[in-house]
Computed example of a mutant assay.
Amino acid sequence: MTVVEKFIETTNRKDIEGALEIFTNDAVINDPSVGRSFDGIDQVRVYVERFFVGYNTTTKLLRTEQITESSVKAYVDFTGDFGHETGYLQFETNGDGLIIRVDADLD
């Protein structure tokens, strides 16, 4: 299972601990749609709790595009209590395959 698939699988199950296991302690999630960046594992937890668990978000993977050896762009379809959105999550990983950065962009 790729890191993208693992992220989607754990967040769809609302498994916060499982999702956090694939991030480094100093990971960053940058999401302009919510107007801020979430820096460090404690803030990554806040992001997952608020936007995936709190909004009952289900993510469907549409396709991926390999950007570099350590970066992949996942085009996704989000549904939840907020309605419906599409966009992408660009994941950057370290040599151990853990997520060091996610850049989100909604259409």
Rank of each mutant, 00 (worst) to 15 (best):
G54F: 07
T86I: 14
I67A: 08
Y88V: 02
G80E: 07
D105E: 14
N56D: 15
F78E: 01
N30Q: 12
I29M: 09
V46F: 13
F91N: 00
E69S: 12
R101V: 02
V53W: 07
K6R: 14
N56L: 02
M1R: 06
N94K: 10
F91P: 01
F78S: 00
P32F: 13
R36K: 15
F52V: 02
V76W: 02
A74T: 05
A104S: 14
L106M: 11
Q66I: 12
V44F: 07
I99F: 04
T57G: 09
R101P: 01
F52P: 00
Y75R: 08
Q90I: 10
I41F: 12
T11V: 15
I100M: 11
E92Y: 05
S33V: 14
E5P: 04
I8S: 02
V3K: 04
R101L: 13
T93A: 07
I16W: 03
I41K: 13
D81Y: 03
N30F: 14
G40P: 00
G18I: 12
T24D: 02
F7T: 04
G54I: 05
Y88D: 01
N12E: 11
K14C: 06
V4W: 03
S70V: 01
Y75D: 11
Q66R: 12
V76K: 00
L106F: 05
T86D: 08
P32N: 13
Q90R: 15
Y75M: 09
D31K: 05
Y75K: 04
I67W: 06
K60S: 13
A27Y: 11
G80S: 07
Y88T: 04
G87D: 10
I100C: 08
A27T: 06
D77P: 02
Y75H: 14
N94E: 08
H84S: 10
T24I: 14
E65H: 07
E65I: 13
I16Y: 01
F91L: 09
D39W: 03
T24Q: 07
A74N: 03
D42E: 15
G40M: 04
K60I: 10
V53P: 00
D81V: 01
V72P: 00
R50L: 07
D39A: 09
K60N: 13
S71F: 03
Q43S: 13
E65T: 11
V44G: 00
E69Y: 08
R63P: 03
T86L: 03
L106Y: 06
D26G: 05
L89K: 01
D107W: 06
Y47I: 11
R13N: 12
F51S: 04
Y88S: 02
D31L: 07
I67K: 13
K14A: 09
K14T: 08
T58D: 11
E9W: 03
N94R: 05
R101N: 14
M1I: 08
D103C: 05
D81C: 02
E17A: 10
D15A: 12
